[in-house]
C-alpha cells in the first residue's frame, strides 16, 4: 500500500510542529476558544453542551487544514520541488491526497486537546453518548476536511492570486458549514453553498450523534458521498492542472 507509506512519510517528515502559527492553532487556540465560550456561558447563565465544545474543536481543525493544506502545493512550487514530485512515477493526485490526509490527522490533535481541556480545565460534560458513533463521525469529518484541503491546494496553486486571500476563506467557511450557526437559518443562496460543502454534512452528522438523533449515518453518508464526488472531480482537476502547467512551463520557480 504505497498511499499508506506516503501518508506515514508525510506525517513523520513534513509535520512542522515548530511552526508558531501551527503551534497556536493546534495547542493554544482550543483553550482560547473554550475560555471564550466558558465566560459567555457564565455571563448568559447557559450551560455549555457537547456541540459547543465540538464546534470550538472544529474551528481549530479547520484553521489548521486551511493553513497547512492550502499552502502545501504552492510551497512545493516555490521550493522548486514540485518538478521532482511530478517527475516521480506516483501520481500527483496520490501525493496531494497523502498530504491532506496527514494534515487532517494532525488536526485531530486539536479535537483531542479540546476534549481534554473541556474535561480537565473547565470540568464540562461533553456528552458523548456513543463513543463509536462519535469516532465514526469524526473520521467522516477528517475525510471532508482532507477533500476541502485538497481543493484549496489546487486552487491556490493554479490561481496564485487567491492564495493571498486565504484569511478571507477561514471565517466564511466556519459560518457556511454550520459549525456555530444552523445552516437552516442562513439565506437561501448561502444555504445552497453550505450544502455543497462536504464539511457541512460531516458537522451535522457529529452534532446529530451528540444529540442522539436518528439521521447520524444518513448525514455521514451524504458527507462521504459528496467527499467522493469532490475527490473524483479533483482527480481530473489535478491532471488538468498538471497539463496546463506543463504547457505553460509554470511548474517550477524558473
Amino acid at each position: 500500500m504505497n498511499i499508506l507509506s506516503l501518508i506515514i512519510k508525510e506525517f513523520i517528515y513534513f509535520t512542522n510542529l515548530n511552526n508558531r502559527i501551527y503551534q497556536f492553532i493546534l495547542f493554544v487556540q482550543p483553550l482560547v476558544l473554550l475560555t471564550i465560550i466558558h465566560f459567555m456561558s457564565v455571563m448568559k447563565g447557559i450551560e455549555i453542551t457537547g456541540p459547543y465544545i465540538i464546534a470550538t474543536a472544529i474551528v481549530s481543525m479547520w484553521s489548521y487544514v486551511l493553513y497547512s493544506s492550502g499552502s502545501s502545493l504552492i510551497w512545493q512550487k516555490w521550493n522548486d520541488s514540485l518538478n521532482l514530485l511530478i517527475a516521480a512515477p506516483v501520481s500527483l493526485f496520490q501525493i496531494v491526497l497523502s498530504k491532506m490526509l496527514s494534515n487532517s490527522l494532525i488536526a485531530f490533535i486539536s479535537l483531542t486537546l479540546t476534549l481534554f481541556y473541556a474535561k480537565i480545565i473547565f470540568s464540562l460534560n461533553i456528552g458523548i453518548a456513543h463513543l463509536g458513533t462519535f469516532i465514526f463521525t469524526a473520521i467522516v469529518l477528517l475525510v471532508s476536511l482532507s477533500v476541502v484541503g485538497m481543493f484549496l491546494a489546487v486552487v491556490f496553486t493554479t490561481v496564485q492570486e487567491v492564495y493571498s486571500f486565504q484569511n478571507f476563506i477561514l471565517t466564511p467557511v466556519i459560518l457556511l458549514s454550520g459549525i456555530f450557526i444552523p445552516v437552516e437559518s442562513l439565506p437561501f443562496t448561502f444555504r445552497i453553498i453550505s450544502y455543497l460543502l462536504p464539511m457541512t454534512w460531516a458537522v451535522e452528522s457529529i452534532y446529530s450523534g451528540l444529540n442522539e438523533t436518528n439521521d447520524v449515518f444518513l448525514l455521514a453518508g451524504v458527507s462521504l458521498g459528496s467527499s467522493f464526488i469532490y475527490l473524483f472531480i479533483l482527480f481530473f482537476g489535478i491532471r488538468r492542472m498538471e497539463k496546463i502547467m506543463k504547457q505553460s512551463g509554470s511548474l517550477g520557480v524558473v
Partner: peptide, 22 residues
C-alpha cells in the same frame, strides 16, 4: 540549492523519494 526539504536529513529525503519511486 532548491528542490530539497531543509528540515529532513539526507536519509529521510531519500527515503521519501523511495516511496515516490515505489
Amino acid at each position: 540549492e532548491k528542490g530539497v526539504y531543509g528540515r529532513l536529513t539526507a536519509f529521510e529525503y531519500l527515503s521519501y523519494f523511495c516511496v515516490l519511486y515505489r
